[in-house]
Design a protein around this nucleic acid. Structure first.
Lengths: 190, 190
DNA sequence: CCGCTCATGTAACAGGTTACATGATTTA
DNA sequence: TAAATCATGTAACCTGTTACATGAGCGG
C-alpha cells in the first residue's frame, strides 16, 4: 500500500487538487512514483475518510470548483511510520528489456524503432528534470543547496529520476547501435 | 500481460523447470523482469495449455521429478508479435524515493539505514552482473562480443540491470551523505 | 465548431502479492 | 537435528489498468 504514502509525500510541500496531483503523477514530475488519475481520486477519498488528509472546497467562477488537500497531523504520523518501516526491494518491470532479451530469435526492425522512441522520451524527461533541479536550487550550486537548502527531499528524488532516465537513454542507444550493426552484418552475408 | 512474454524470452536460450525459472526470476538473474514462484507456475500452466511452450517430465531418483519447458513454434510467433507491438512506457515504482521525498518532514535515522541496506544489496547485484557478463563474453572484449557473439540479447539486458543497480547504489550513497550531514547540522544547532 | 484544459469520478477486469500446503533429500 | 534446497501448487486478497461517463469554458 505505497500509493497512499506517495500521495501523502506529494502533498507535504503544497496543497493540491486531485487534478493537479494527477498531472504531476502522470507527467512524471512527481518522478518518485507513477499513478493514474482514477487511482488518485480513489486514494484521495480513502485518505480523507481515514483522516490522513483534509480537503477544502475552492469555489471558482470560470472553472469548475475543486478540492485542495493537505496532510493532517495523523497523515504525517502515518508517513513517519511508513518511513521507519522496512522498504520493499525495487524491481525492474519494463517491456523493452524483455524484447531485447529475445532479440537473437526474432526480427529486430520494429524493436529498434521502439528503442529510439524510448531514448527520445527519456531525453525529454532528462531536460525536464534538469530544468526542475535548476529551479529548485536557484542561485546556489548543487553542493551548497544540498547542504543548506530548506527542502532537499524533492531535489534528491529528482536526481534519482534524472539518473534513471539517463540510464534508459544510454542503454537504448547502445542497444540500437549493436542491433543495427548486427542486422547490417546479417544482411551482408546474404 | 507481459509476464507471459518474459517467461517465453527466458525459455528461449535454455530449457528450464518452474523451479529453476523461479530462482532466476527472484534472484534477479533474469534481470529484465521480476516475478514470484507462484506466478510462474501458474503462467507456465497457462502457456502450456495455450500451446506456446511444451513441457517434458524428467524423472529423478534422488530429487523430486521436474518438468522442463521449451518454447514451441507458436510461442516464438507470439514473441515475435509482442516484440513488434508498441511497448508500454516504463515507470519507477520504489518505496525508497517516496520516503526520501518526505525526508524534510520526518525523522531520517531509520531511512538512512534503509538507504545503506539498499546500497549494499545493489552492490551485491552489481558484482553478480559483472561476473555474469564476463562469463557470457568469455575471452573476447565487450565490443568484440557484441559485434560477433552468438547471443547478445541476454548480454544487453544484463547491461541494463547493471546500470540500474549502479544508479541505485550511487543515488543511495549520495542521499546518505546529504541526510547525514544535515542531521549533524541540525544536531549542532541544539 | 472542434479540440484542449479543467475537474471528478464509477465499474469491470487484469495482474500481482501474501499466506497456506506438502514432502523428500542434502548440508551444517 | 535443524535448516536449506529441490519441486509444485491453491486460494484469498490487494493493486493497477482500461473503458466509460459528464460537463463547462477557452483558443484557434
Amino acid at each position: 500500500m505505497a500509493l497512499r504514502h506517495a500521495v501523502l509525500a506529494a502533498l507535504l510541500d503544497e496543497e493540491l487538487s486531485g487534478y493537479q496531483l494527477a498531472k504531476s503523477f502522470s507527467l512524471g514530475v512527481a518522478n518518485f512514483w507513477h499513478a493514474q488519475p482514477q487511482q488518485l481520486y480513489a486514494e484521495l477519498s480513502r485518505l480523507e475518510s481515514d483522516g490522513l488528509i483534509a480537503g477544502r472546497e475552492v469555489v471558482q467562477d470560470t472553472r469548475p470548483n475543486k478540492r485542495l488537500f493537505k496532510v493532517t497531523a495523523a497523515g504525517l504520523a502515518e508517513l513517519e511510520r511508513f518511513t521507519a518501516a522496512a522498504a520493499k526491494p525495487s524491481f525492474m518491470r519494463d517491456d523493452l528489456p524483455v524484447k531485447v532479451q529475445a532479440a537473437d530469435h526474432v526480427d529486430t526492425g520494429e524493436l529498434i524503432n521502439q528503442l529510439a522512441e524510448r531514448a527520445a522520451f527519456a531525453q525529454t524527461k532528462i531536460d525536464l528534470f534538469e530544468r526542475l533541479l535548476q529551479t529548485m536550487r536557484g542561485e546556489s550550486g548543487e553542493e551548497e543547496f544540498l547542504r543548506h537548502g530548506e527542502r532537499v527531499g524533492p531535489y534528491l528524488t529528482c536526481l534519482r529520476g534524472l539518473a534513471f532516465e539517463q540510464g534508459n537513454r544510454d542503454w537504448c542507444e547502445r542497444a540500437i547501435t549493436v542491433l543495427r550493426e548486427r542486422k547490417a552484418a546479417a544482411h551482408d552475408r546474404h
